[in-house]
Simulated assay, not measured.
Amino acid sequence: MSVHDELTSVQRCLDDLARSVGRLEQQLGASLEMRRVRADADHLRESLALLREAAPVLTQPRRPDLLSIPDTPYDNSLWTDSDDEGLGARDRHAP
């Protein structure tokens, strides 16, 4: 699943939790414990909202810095001390 799908799933679960807490509150009344449960559920919803805002930043792959390569030919003097790879030296032949 993608991050967006996971966040949507968590949002649905928190919505279900809020409905369940509301039903419990109707049955049990607004006691101190019930207010704490309501506050905790609200904090979860707020935290998820903050995570949703940060998620695009967290999930975007970081693009590497681009490096421009000029179209001009390389200086041939750069290659004077190297052999042709795989072919051996110029003044010798393969065994």
Rank of each mutant, 00 (worst) to 15 (best):
M1K: 02
S2I: 12
V3K: 02
H4W: 11
T8D: 10
T8P: 07
S9Q: 12
S9L: 10
Q11M: 07
Q11V: 03
R12K: 14
R12N: 14
L14C: 01
D15L: 04
D15K: 05
D16V: 06
L17Q: 01
L17V: 00
L17T: 00
A18E: 01
A18M: 03
R19W: 09
S20D: 11
V21S: 00
V21Y: 00
G22H: 14
L24F: 05
E25H: 08
Q26T: 08
Q26I: 12
Q26Y: 11
Q26N: 11
Q27R: 15
Q27T: 15
L28C: 10
E33D: 10
M34F: 00
R35A: 02
R36I: 02
R36P: 01
V37I: 05
A41L: 01
D42G: 03
H43I: 05
H43K: 10
L44H: 08
L44E: 07
L44Q: 08
L44C: 09
R45I: 03
R45M: 10
E46M: 06
S47Y: 09
S47I: 08
L48T: 00
A49H: 13
A49C: 09
A49Q: 13
L50H: 03
R52L: 15
R52C: 13
E53K: 07
E53H: 08
A54T: 02
A55G: 01
P56G: 05
P56Y: 05
V57G: 11
L58N: 00
Q60F: 04
P61D: 02
P61C: 04
R62L: 03
R63A: 15
P64S: 05
P64N: 03
P64R: 10
D65S: 15
D65W: 14
L66Y: 12
L67V: 13
D71T: 08
D71H: 09
D71V: 09
Y74W: 13
Y74A: 09
D75L: 03
D75R: 06
N76V: 12
L78F: 13
L78S: 15
L78W: 12
W79I: 11
S82R: 14
S82Q: 15
D83C: 09
D83P: 02
D84C: 11
D84N: 13
G86T: 08
G86R: 07
L87T: 13
G88C: 11
G88S: 12
H93Q: 12
